[in-house]
């Protein structure tokens, strides 16, 4: 995912000299090509995320579109007040890019588990969350990000879905709009699994089980506080929605959908179930797939 992201960013920088990529001393074997092609648009801020994020605000205030790149929690939680005060409050054009969303770096331990980031980033009024799960979603998210002038959080997982070629490839994903990923056998079914982020494979595995064989798969890759009012109509279409996210339940994507549902006049008519990570994952180390299996994620 990160390689595809950097390819798109490099391409955009060809025609936009206001793109600025800042890294927190990370990105080995990923950012080199960008750096070589556009050295004046690349800054290694060192291991100092507070300063990186504050500087990003300063650059954005001078009309740059800044991408702050790091892994897991370093460019989110470590500098959360800089994101809150310096970027979001001023509504600056900064995109926080975190690679290793969810348990991508599961073997590296709790410090590298990005499993509370939605809770943080969705609490900022101007922030849009971009959590793509497929290659075409990354393309569409990046198109939106380049077009937008507001704060963005781009959350990238480690790998693209293994069977992504079989999935729908939407040409367009609009902010706040659900995207069809895979239909179930029964086209008339009014049940769906709603994902965000790099959990498409998990949803596909879920659908293969008898219990969820009658559920379509949809994703909502672009969301945030300002798109809550768009959710009612989409929620109302369904009898049952199961949200799926590689994040803890509290403050996450499922909570967001529940909050949106609570604002609907006919609240309660759609049954919403949340599937998220077991909190005990915080104390466990292991490969992402093993951790998910061990804690029965998406079961």
């Amino acid at each position: 995912m990160r390689n595809y992201f950097i390819d798109l960013l490099t391409k955009e920088a060809e025609s936009n000299n206001k793109i600025m990529l800042m890294v927190g001393d990370l990105g080995f074997s990923v950012v080199e090509n960008f750096k070589e092609k556009y050295p004046k648009q690349f800054i290694n801020a060192g291991v100092a995320e507070q300063n990186m994020t504050g500087m990003a605000a300063g650059l954005a205030s001078e009309k740059f579109h800044v991408f702050t790149y790091s892994i897991a929690n370093f460019n989110t939680f470590r500098c959360s007040e800089q994101i809150r005060n310096d970027i979001d409050y001023h509504n600056y054009n900064v995109t926080v890019v975190s690679v290793g969303g969810g348990l991508s770096y599961g073997a590296l331990g709790y410090s590298h588990h990005a499993i509370q980031d939605y809770a943080l980033m969705r609490s900022f009024p101007n922030m849009t969350i971009y959590a793509p799960g497929t290659r075409s979603e990354i393309t569409n998210c990046m198109k939106q990000i380049f077009k937008s002038k507001s704060p963005a959080y781009l959350r990238l997982g480690k790998t693209l879905p293994k069977n992504f070629k079989k999935l729908y490839k939407p040409n367009h994903c609009a902010p706040g709009k659900w995207t069809k990923i895979l239909e179930c056998k029964n086209p008339d079914s009014r049940k769906c699994i709603l994902t965000t982020g790099a959990v498409i494979d998990d949803a596909v595995q879920m659908q293969k089980k008898e219990e969820f064989s009658n559920y379509h798969i949809y994703s909502l890759p672009i969301w945030g506080m300002q798109y809550k009012t768009l959710q009612a109509k989409q929620i109302n279409k369904w009898d049952e929605i199961v949200t799926l996210e590689d994040h803890l339940e509290d403050g996450g994507f499922g909570s967001y959908i529940l909050e949106c549902n609570s604002n609907i006049k006919t609240a309660g008519e759609t049954k919403i179930k949340l599937k998220s990570l077991n909190k005990n994952v915080c104390n466990t180390v292991g490969d992402q797939d093993n951790l998910k299996e061990h804690f029965k994620f998406a079961h």
Partner: peptide, 22 residues
């Protein structure tokens, strides 16, 4: 007023970003 402040330690990093831009 160029930049909102209130929580300490935010002004200088932003100033450095502006100086980089210049």
């Amino acid at each position: 007023v160029e930049f909102s402040t209130g929580s300490l330690g935010h002004g200088l990093p932003c100033a450095v970003g502006k100086a980089m831009a210049a």
